[in-house]
Write a protein that binds this DNA or RNA. Structure first.
Length: 329
DNA sequence: CGCGTTTGACCGGCGC
DNA sequence: GCGCCGGTCAAACGCG
């Protein structure tokens, strides 16, 4: 639990908000449930407690902010889960095989546009992601953690570039083939469309476009999951995360609501900062204040460390990675 | 000459 | 039904 001083901005008593970033499948639902039931009596000590002295209007304001932060929390959890799945919980051979099998069963690149679009076969994961529905896929009942990770198909990565650089390229270790470019309505700069060129059957697509607010920020949207290793062994993460932080990068949290872009580099003072919050300027201000606080940083580190160390899959994978680095005896 | 990029046209989804 | 818009295709083009 992170103590948010949202109430200070709303002019009333402090309130505790859940910003946990746990990796368990049930975690994303927690925030929404709390938003819907803010006065659940079974919450642990330190959970959400509305001050009894606040007015209805203040309560509504807080509830709105509460819902907003809960949604943010959910998206952050999804993003972290995706990164976890990409870097640690690599798809099992079964999954990779099934992916390959489904792709082998699907028709080859169509000789004609009509044939490919009129195909009655169910779309594979990449196609589903391309249609913008993959992120909304619900977990089947009883799905394990790894299964839930696989359903996060869309991620966004922001990279700071030279504003004079007109090439819409994001160096992420993979090889991409550009297949289209389009000027979209909400952004004067063109959007470039890429497909993964490393493996012909790889369904991953990438859209790259300059940020509408800041032309020096390149926003790359990845759809689908690679079914092959990264050619340069750097993984899907942008270069800053895997090559020592020489290139600024950030993670943008999601697609349907207000977009919050967190800069994860250690530029200047270092640490996390909010690059942009498209559609939610108030939220950006609030987040900047929260993230700047020592309490937030300390609690975030503790929360993430706690969540990771509680996850047996993570500790197992970590132990295996460490063992690999040790000489054989 | 082969390969990757560019770019105008086309298609399908969606809102009115 | 119509128009808008994002996504995709494929011929044309450019480069090594």
């Amino acid at each position: 639990m992170l103590l948010m001083d949202s109430a200070r901005h709303a002019g009333c008593s402090p309130v505790c908000l859940d910003l946990s970033v746990g990796l368990s499948p049930s975690t994303p639902k927690t925030g929404a449930r709390m938003a819907a039931e803010p006065e659940r009596p079974d919450l642990p000590a330190g959970g959400c407690r509305m001050a009894s002295s606040m007015t209805d209007e203040q309560a509504k304001t807080l509830e709105a902010k509460f819902t907003q932060v809960s949604e943010l929390n959910r998206r952050l959890t999804e993003t972290i889960a995706y990164l976890y799945a990409s870097q640690i919980a690599r798809p099992s051979p079964d999954f990779a095989d099934s992916t390959r099998a489904s792709q082998a069963a699907s028709p080859p690149p169509a000789a004609s546009r009509k044939r490919s679009r009129d195909s009655s076969e169910p779309p594979n994961s990449g196609d589903a992601a391309a249609s913008g529905k993959a992120e909304a896929v619900e977990s089947p009942p009883g799905d394990d953690f790894e299964g839930s990770c696989r359903q996060i198909k869309v991620s966004r990565v922001c990279t700071r570039i030279d504003p004079s650089d007109t090439t819409l390229t994001v160096k992420d270790g993979y090889q991409w083939r550009k297949y289209g470019q389009k000027v979209t309505r909400d952004n004067p700069s063109p959007r470039a469309y890429f497909r993964c060129a490393y493996a012909p059957s790889c369904p991953v697509k990438k859209k790259v476009q300059r940020s509408a607010e800041d032309s020096s920020v390149l926003v790359a949207t990845y759809e689908g999951e690679h079914n092959h290793p990264c050619p340069t062994r750097t993984g899907e993460l942008p270069s800053c995360a895997t090559r020592g932080g020489s290139v600024p990068c950030s993670i943008s949290i999601n697609s349907s609501g207000p977009t919050i872009t967190l800069d994860l580099t250690k530029n200047g003072a270092g640490g996390v900062r909010v690059l942009e919050a498209a559609g939610a300027p108030d939220l950006k201000k609030l987040l900047c204040q929260e993230i700047a606080s020592a309490e937030f940083r300390t609690a975030l580190v503790e929360q993430m460390a706690s969540s990771l160390t509680r996850d047996s899959k993570f500790t197992d994978a970590l132990a295996a990675a460490i063992l690999k680095q040790l000489p054989d005896y």
